[in-house]
């Protein structure tokens, strides 16, 4: 690129927003910024409401007053640089952080109106209402069939026709049925990485969860397997409410309906994915999605 001074950068965002990293500098200095939540997010019915949620690991605050509705039946992506709190937020939703000593929280989260952090909330019951899939596929060392129906088994379901039906429906739902229907009794550990991950999604949806939580579900997969999981996420849209954490910006833009950009434990901008990736309101979001920082 020419080094001669050009009158203005043709890609600069609206002049009203100030330097691209103003808000981020404020956040980095420990200050508060008002998140930019687009009107269309507020208007969509929420399956999950996160309400002024704070979380500390010991004395270090990892989440700062996060308030965001997670739309019902849509795919919502959490993006942001490492350490921005997106995984912490995801793990707070099904109270996985309860397992971490020294974690302290304030604020509320509600799943279809039920307070998640209420003392009367049964955590096992809560996790049945939310399926979770992790970075690395974690099939249980048992057959494909038993993996899928595991949740039903521990609930005491033993009627074979019921289990068969759920197994097929879930595997079809996870776009895996055609590949494994002839070897359901074989060990799940013999599947490829991508198949294992789709098996984990099948296992998660077998319990018919209200929300599906995906924590970087493709980061350990090759591009072909990633493509299949992303296609699957597209198909789950409308059927399930999905909350996905991803490092991969293109994955967020391809697979989600809404995108939330987080930075150092704070929500910065949250809106329809098309807006976030074509005309974000904030320069800070623009700088992150175009790869100028982070």
């Amino acid at each position: 690129m020419s080094t001669s001074p050009s009158p203005a950068d043709p890609r600069q965002p609206p002049p009203s927003a100030g330097p691209a990293t103003d808000r981020l500098a404020v956040v980095a200095a420990g200050g508060q910024v008002e998140p930019e939540v687009h009107e269309r997010v507020r208007q969509t019915p929420a399956v999950l409401e996160i309400d002024r949620f704070n979380l500390w690991y010991g004395t270090k605050q990892a989440l700062h007053s996060i308030t965001m509705p997670i739309p019902h039946g849509k795919v919502t992506a959490l993006i942001g640089p490492s350490g921005c709190g997106k995984s912490t937020l995801l793990r707070s939703v099904n109270r996985l952080n309860d397992l971490v000593p020294s974690v302290r929280i304030t604020g509320e989260m509600r799943l279809n109106g039920d307070p998640i952090y209420d003392q009367r909330m049964d955590v096992i019951e809560l996790r049945k209402r939310m399926g979770m899939v992790f970075q690395r596929p974690n099939p249980f060392p048992m057959s494909i069939y038993e993996n899928v129906v595991y949740a039903l088994r521990i609930d005491g379901e033993s009627r074979r026709p019921v289990l068969d039906e759920v197994c097929e429906r879930s595997l079809r739902g996870a776009a895996l049925w055609d590949e494994v229907k002839d070897r359901l009794s074989e060990s799940a550990l013999g599947l490829s990485g991508g198949q294992q991950q789709r098996l984990c999604i099948a296992r998660a949806i077998a319990a018919e969860p209200e929300v599906l939580l995906l924590d970087e579900p493709c980061s350990a997969l090759d591009p072909i397997a990633t493509g299949k999981v992303e296609e699957l996420i597209q198909e789950l849209r409308g059927l399930y409410s999905v909350l996905i954490v991803t490092h991969n910006m293109q994955q967020a833009s391809r697979s989600s309906d809404y995108t939330a950009f987080m930075y150092l434990g704070r929500l910065i901008e949250y809106g329809p994915t098309t807006d976030i990736f074509t005309k974000p309101v904030l320069r800070e979001t623009e700088a992150y999605v175009t790869g100028r920082f982070g």
Binding site: R11, Q12, Q250, F277, P280, E286, V289
Partner: peptide, 10 residues
């Protein structure tokens, strides 16, 4: 480069 936002608009 699969540009997004300002890059894409440009």
């Amino acid at each position: 480069y699969q540009p997004v936002a300002a890059d894409l608009r440009f």
